[in-house]
């Protein structure tokens, strides 16, 4: 059988999209490193790194690089977790922020900041860990709430997310009463989100956990494809459902936890990136998971770039920009969902 017959054109499209995104990310990273309030011409970067001193070097190494790389890590993880959660809940309207997973992670981080102050050296590692635990609890709770014998009910899921977001907002509000001045500043940062406080130390602490999330989620692609047909069908096709769900929940919570501990709640990346990849190529999770991660990383670095250049020298919170992009997109998806379900 010839190659053309055995691999439909869709497969070529997937590969092309994945390659394109893999090439897009380094270009966006370079752009992010170069542009900003302090412009660093691309061609000067190798010389700067070799010289190892001066203002430009300081800006590049201490500020620009951790910020841009952190943005890529955060965006990649949020998009990956978004794609995985959409597969788990079998619904394309799912976003870690909308259904309250990010809120759970933020609560975990807030609890750590306020109730365990002065953790010292442990802080850099404790924060993502607590954010992970918060995200894990939220995801498990959501699954129990929204799962019915007839599959996941999207209304219940979104309403639960609404309740969870409100509840977590209130709890974080209560925690601010317990917080000291300095803790309060950290808390405000988490509720707003952003990449301005990223340091190498935070980034290097989050990186292994982020890679673990990647390692947990990427091999689940085939199982997710089968799950798209329904839980019973996935079992009939030989998928160990409990194991798949367990790893999906843990991996997504880990990804969101690391992202939130690094940058707070950045909304809509987890919704946008998987959708754009599906439009670009298709829904096969073997390509969708890495593709969303790459696309989410690029989108986030670009959003942060806009956030710090549009109104330079001051900064627009990056969450505002992603919401400006994501909000209308979400409305469009809801409208499409309405048309599909009610034919209206």
């Amino acid at each position: 059988m010839t190659e053309a017959l055995s691999t439909p054109s869709r497969l070529r499209r997937y590969r092309r999209a994945l390659w394109g995104l893999a090439l897009l990310l380094p270009s966006v990273l370079l752009l992010g490193v170069s542009l900003g309030a302090y412009h660093i011409p691309l061609q000067d970067i190798p010389a700067l790194l070799l010289r190892g001193e001066g203002v430009a070097y300081q800006v590049l190494v201490a500020l620009r690089l951790p910020r841009v790389l952190g943005g890529a890590l955060v965006g990649g993880l949020l998009a990956l977790a978004g794609a995985a959660l959409q597969g788990l809940f079998r619904n394309p309207l799912v976003d870690p922020g909308l259904i309250g997973v990010s809120a759970g992670a933020a609560l975990g981080a807030a609890v750590f900041i306020v109730l365990l102050p002065g953790a010292g050296a442990l802080e850099t590692y404790g924060l993502p860990l607590f954010a992970f635990l918060g995200g894990l609890l939220a995801t498990r709770l959501l699954w129990r709430l929204a799962h019915t014998p007839l599959g996941v009910q999207v209304t219940v899921l979104l309403l639960s997310g609404l309740a969870l977001n409100a509840l977590v907002g209130a709890l974080i509000g209560l925690l601010t009463f317990l917080a000291s001045e300095q803790e309060l500043r950290s808390l405000t940062f988490w509720t707003l989100g952003g990449f301005s406080a990223l340091t190498w130390r935070l980034l290097l602490a989050g990186l292994p956990l982020g890679l673990l999330a990647l390692f947990l989620l990427l091999p689940l692609a085939r199982g997710l494809n089968a799950l798209a047909l329904g839980e019973r069908e996935a079992f009939h096709l030989g998928v160990d459902l409990e194991r798949l769900k367990g790893r999906l929940v843990a991996g997504s919570a880990l990804g969101v936890g690391v992202a939130v501990s690094l940058a707070g709640g950045i909304g809509f990346i987890g919704l946008l990136a998987p959708h754009l990849f599906r439009l670009l190529a298709g829904p096969d999770h073997r390509f969708l998971l890495p593709g969303s991660a790459l696309l989410g990383a690029s989108l986030t670095v670009l959003a942060d770039l806009l956030a710090r250049t549009l109104a330079a020298p001051s900064e627009i919170p990056v969450g505002v920009l992603t919401a400006l992009l994501g909000g209308p997109f979400f409305l469009y998806l809801v409208l499409r969902h309405k048309r599909e379900v009610y034919r209206a």
């Binding site: 439909p8 494809n225 798209a228 047909l229 096709l237 298709g282 096969d284």
Partner: peptide, 19 residues
Amino acid sequence: GREMSFPFTAYEVAFLGRL
């Protein structure tokens, strides 16, 4: 049941049988 929430092609659905 015939539930599907993502735009898979017919080929991709049939191919899942090989899983």
